[in-house]
Design a protein around this nucleic acid. Structure first.
Length: 368
DNA sequence: TAGACGTGGTC
DNA sequence: TGACCAAGTCT
């Protein structure tokens, strides 16, 4: 697979690192090599673009400056810091890992890739990144950039969506990574993948490593990386229950085993069939309210459904509204009534913000 | 192993 | 609008 001579390998390392030394991005988590800083940034950067992460990183470090702060944080505060970033299990796992570090490791970081992978939420990529950047270990950190860059440089045809392909790339990169600057090497690959060797509109003519890019030399850049197609999101019909009471609106904390776990939102019920639609007021009444009142108060909100697309599901949400004259009984309900002025204190998913915006607009329309 | 797990940017 | 992408991990 890798046919480069030692001289070519050395030339590649030198070319890449010289370019990196002059052109590296100054990023907030590149000011030092503190493993906590590297860790937080790497978790945030999973499947998330750099420009999105930067403000979150600053806020997070202000709120949780140390591992102890992270370990002790209330879950709602933690999720609030992550609100809008997505993949919320990342931050819940980070707190679990912080507690692991304090309880089982005496607060001392494992410094090997294998040791780091024992921590919850740290997989092969993040372990490689922390090991190389924070602890100077010659370990690969194979992310999407590394897949794209090395698949083009070496015309590697393996499907990068297959788990076993990662091992192939790690084996190759181990032969290329310089032992004196492994962290800079890995970060240089990422900077390269974010500048000249991007997925869309790459600029290989001006790339510092164009002479090493076999796919470019062969006019085959578009053929790499090889990746099987993704599944289309499945459509789901839902009804959002917008329950207004004298004290505010009813929010539900989503269960830990469902999508958007532990976040707060208006109750969402399945709305796939006519039968389910007819049963909605009863379901609602059983859960947290007096049935007769609910049946009188509940009505559909006019207007098109709110749509929200996840990686694997596309939600179509109709809105149901009820105005209650008294507080519902919430003793058997995982939720609370929140005044509008305090909505921003709860961690909510983006789809909840969309529902609220649509509801506000349509309520005005009803009075037109 | 394949599918679950979010969101925002881009074309 | 839809399809794809962005510093992946867990089950």
């Amino acid at each position: 697979m890798l046919t480069w001579s030692d001289a070519k390998t050395k030339a590649f390392q030198t070319t890449l690192l010289d370019w990196y030394d002059k052109n590296r991005r100054e990023l907030p988590w590149r000011k030092d090599h503190d493993p906590y800083h590297i860790w937080v940034s790497e978790i945030m950067l999973q499947q998330t673009q750099v420009n999105t992460v930067i403000p979150y990183y600053h806020r997070f470090m202000k709120m949780f400056p140390t591992i102890d702060d992270l370990a002790r944080a209330p879950e709602n505060q933690l999720l609030k810091a992550w609100e809008g970033l997505g993949y919320y299990s990342r931050v819940r796992n980070m707190q679990r890992a912080a507690r692991q570090l304090l309880d089982d490791y005496d607060g001392k970081w494992p410094q090997t890739k294998a040791g780091l992978q024992e921590l919850v939420g740290i997989g092969p990529y993040t372990a490689g990144a922390i090991a190389s950047i924070a602890f100077n270990q010659p370990e690969p950190a194979v992310d999407g950039n590394a897949f794209r860059v090395f698949s083009q440089l070496l015309e590697i045809e393996a499907d990068i969506t297959k788990p076993q392909t990662r091992q192939l790339f790690e084996t190759v990169i181990r032969k290329l990574i310089p032992h004196d600057r492994p962290g800079d090497f890995n970060q240089a690959i990422m900077d390269l993948g974010a500048s000249y060797m991007t997925a869309k509109n790459p600029d290989n003519e001006n790339s510092p490593v164009r002479a090493f890019n076999q796919a470019y030399l062969d006019g085959r850049v578009a053929d790499f990386p090889v990746r099987s197609k993704r599944l289309k999101p499945v459509d789901k019909q839902l009804a959002a229950l917008i329950i207004h009471t004298p004290e505010g609106y009813l929010f539900q904390q989503r269960a830990s085993n469902e999508l958007l776990a532990k976040l707060w939102a208006f109750p969402l019920l399945a709305n796939e069939t006519d039968t389910e639609v007819e049963a909605l007021p009863t379901v609602l009444a059983e859960q947290f309210c007096d049935e007769t009142e609910i049946k009188v108060a509940l009505r559909w909100v006019a207007g098109p459904a709110v749509t929200h697309t996840f990686t694997h599901q596309k939600w179509h949400i109709a809105l149901l509204h009820a105005d209650l004259r008294k507080q519902p009984d919430l003793s058997h309900f995982a939720g609370r009534v929140v005044p509008e002025a305090k909505f921003d204190q709860l961690p909510v998913p983006t789809v909840q913000k969309k529902i609220w915006q649509a509801y506000q607009k349509r309520q005005i329309n009803l009075f037109d």
